[in-house]
Computed example of a mutant assay.
Amino acid sequence: MPPYSPTLRLDSIDVFRAVTMFLMIFVNDLWSLQDVPHWLEHSKAAEDAMGLSDVVFPGFLFIVGLSIPFAIANRRKKGDSNALIIRHIAERTFALLLMGIFIVNYENIAGGAMVVSKHVWEIGMVIAFFLIWNVYPLTPAKKGLYTALKVAGYVLLAGLAVIYKGGDAENPSWMETHWYGILGLIGWSYLLGALTYVVTRDRLAWAVGGWLLFVLFNLADFSGVLRFLDPVEKYVWIVGSGSMPAFVMGGVVASVIYRNNAGRNAVGKTYLVMLIVLGLICLAYGFGTRPFWGISKIRATPAWVGICSGISFVAFAFLFWLVDLQKIKNWANVIKPAGTATLTCYLIPYIWYAVITLAGISLPLYLRTGWIGLVKSACFSLLVILLTGAINRIGIKLKI
C-alpha cells in the first residue's frame, strides 16, 4: 500500500482522542470539587512535579499531530494543491485562535461591569461558535439559510465583544489575547505542525528534523542560548518556547513512520516496537533534563516535554496494539463521540456550567468531596460525551 494513500486509517487514533477528551473534561471539572488528590491536579509553577492534569493537554497535542499526515494526504488525494491546503490550515488556525481568545477573555471577565451576566455572555459565546462552525447539510435550497446562520454567529460574537469588560470591575479593560487559551494554543501548535508536514511530507528524516527543531528550541531557551532574542520574544516566538509544537510533531513522526511501513509484512509488531523505543528515548530525555529545570507544565520545561512525549508514545503504542492489532475496540463505543466530535464535546461544559449557575443548581457538598466527587466528575465527563452523541444525531456538530 503506497505511503501517501489516505486509506491508511488507524482506529486507535480516534480511540486515543476519545480517551484523552474524556480525561480532559474530567480534569477540567476538578475545580468543582474539594479534597482532590494532589496527583490529579495541575502542579504549580514553582513545583518540580507533574499531575495527571499536566499530562492530558500534551497528549491531545500529540493526537493533533497523529491526525495531520492522514488529513493532508486525504486532501492531496482529492486533488488539493499546496496553496489550497495551506489556506485550509490557515482557516482552521483562525477558528481555533478566535475561539481561544473569546474563551480566555471569558475567564478574565468583569461580570459586574457588564450590561449582562457573565454567564449569559458565556452562553452567547458558545451559541455563536455553533452557529459559525456547525456542519450544515449540503442542501442547495437551504444554503441561504445556513449562510445567514453563520453570519448571525459572527454578528453575535461582534456584539459580545462590544459589551465586553474584563479585569477589574472598577477599571475594566477590553478584550486581550492574554495566553490565547487552550484552543488558541492548539491553533498555534497545529499551524506550525501542519505547515512543517506540508514541507516534509512523509520523508521521515525531515519529519524527525522538524520535531527536533522544536525540542531543541525549547532546550536552548531554558539553557540560555536564546537570550540574544529577548528583545523580540514578546513579538515573535514559538508557542510554549517550542514545547507545544514539539508534542504535535512527535505525533506527526509517529504517523509518518506508520505510513512509510504500512505496506510491509509484520508492520504491526515493528511499528509497536518503534513507538515504545521512541517513548523510552523521550522519557530518558525528560528525566535526564529534570535535574536542571525540574518538571513543570506552567514553565513548559524540557523535562515536561520529554516525559509527556514519552507517555504519549507509550499510550499510543498500547492503544495501537489493543485496537488495531487485537481488534479490541467495542469498549470505546460509549465514548466514540469524543473522538469524532471533539470540539463539540469540549464546548458543551461551558453551556452546562453557565446554565446550572443561572438556575442556582448545586450538588450537595458530600457529592463534591474526595473520591465521591471524583466519581461525580467521571460521570459528568461521560454525560457530556453522551450528550455530544445525542446532538450529533440531530445535526449539530462542529467542524473546522
Rank of each mutant, 00 (worst) to 15 (best):
residue 2 P to C: 02
residue 2 P to L: 09
residue 3 P to Q: 10
residue 4 Y to K: 05
residue 20 T to Y: 04
residue 22 F to T: 01
residue 22 F to C: 00
residue 27 V to N: 05
residue 29 D to H: 13
residue 34 Q to L: 03
residue 36 V to K: 02
residue 39 W to F: 13
residue 41 E to V: 03
residue 44 K to G: 08
residue 52 L to I: 13
residue 52 L to C: 11
residue 63 I to S: 08
residue 69 P to G: 03
residue 72 I to F: 07
residue 73 A to T: 02
residue 77 K to W: 14
residue 79 G to S: 08
residue 83 A to R: 15
residue 86 I to V: 13
residue 87 R to Y: 15
residue 89 I to T: 05
residue 89 I to M: 08
residue 92 R to K: 15
residue 95 A to C: 10
residue 95 A to Q: 10
residue 97 L to I: 15
residue 99 M to A: 06
residue 113 A to H: 08
residue 120 V to L: 15
residue 121 W to P: 09
residue 121 W to H: 15
residue 123 I to K: 10
residue 126 V to Q: 03
residue 135 V to W: 03
residue 138 L to P: 01
residue 142 K to Y: 14
residue 146 Y to M: 00
residue 146 Y to E: 00
residue 148 A to T: 10
residue 157 L to K: 06
residue 159 G to W: 12
residue 170 E to H: 14
residue 173 S to M: 13
residue 179 W to G: 00
residue 182 I to N: 10
residue 182 I to P: 04
residue 184 G to Y: 10
residue 187 G to H: 10
residue 188 W to D: 00
residue 191 L to C: 12
residue 192 L to Y: 13
residue 197 Y to T: 01
residue 198 V to G: 05
residue 199 V to H: 10
residue 205 A to I: 11
residue 209 G to H: 14
residue 210 G to V: 08
residue 212 L to H: 05
residue 212 L to C: 06
residue 213 L to T: 14
residue 215 V to L: 11
residue 216 L to Q: 02
residue 216 L to F: 13
residue 225 V to T: 06
residue 227 R to W: 09
residue 227 R to F: 07
residue 231 P to A: 08
residue 238 I to M: 11
residue 239 V to T: 10
residue 239 V to A: 01
residue 244 M to A: 01
residue 249 M to C: 04
residue 249 M to G: 02
residue 254 A to M: 12
residue 270 T to V: 07
residue 273 V to C: 07
residue 281 I to W: 09
residue 282 C to V: 00
residue 282 C to W: 09
residue 282 C to T: 00
residue 290 R to G: 10
residue 291 P to I: 08
residue 291 P to N: 08
residue 294 G to M: 14
residue 296 S to K: 10
residue 306 G to N: 04
residue 308 C to P: 02
residue 313 F to A: 00
residue 314 V to I: 15
residue 316 F to Y: 15
residue 320 F to D: 04
residue 323 V to Y: 11
residue 326 Q to V: 03
residue 327 K to W: 08
residue 329 K to S: 14
residue 330 N to I: 12
residue 331 W to S: 11
residue 332 A to L: 08
residue 334 V to Q: 03
residue 336 K to W: 15
residue 340 T to N: 11
residue 344 T to Y: 03
residue 346 Y to G: 01
residue 347 L to H: 01
residue 353 Y to T: 13
residue 353 Y to G: 07
residue 354 A to V: 11
residue 355 V to T: 14
residue 356 I to S: 04
residue 359 A to P: 07
residue 360 G to M: 12
residue 361 I to P: 02
residue 364 P to Y: 08
residue 369 T to R: 11
residue 375 V to D: 03
residue 378 A to C: 10
residue 381 S to K: 09
residue 384 V to L: 06
residue 386 L to C: 06
residue 387 L to Q: 02
residue 389 G to Y: 13
residue 395 G to H: 12
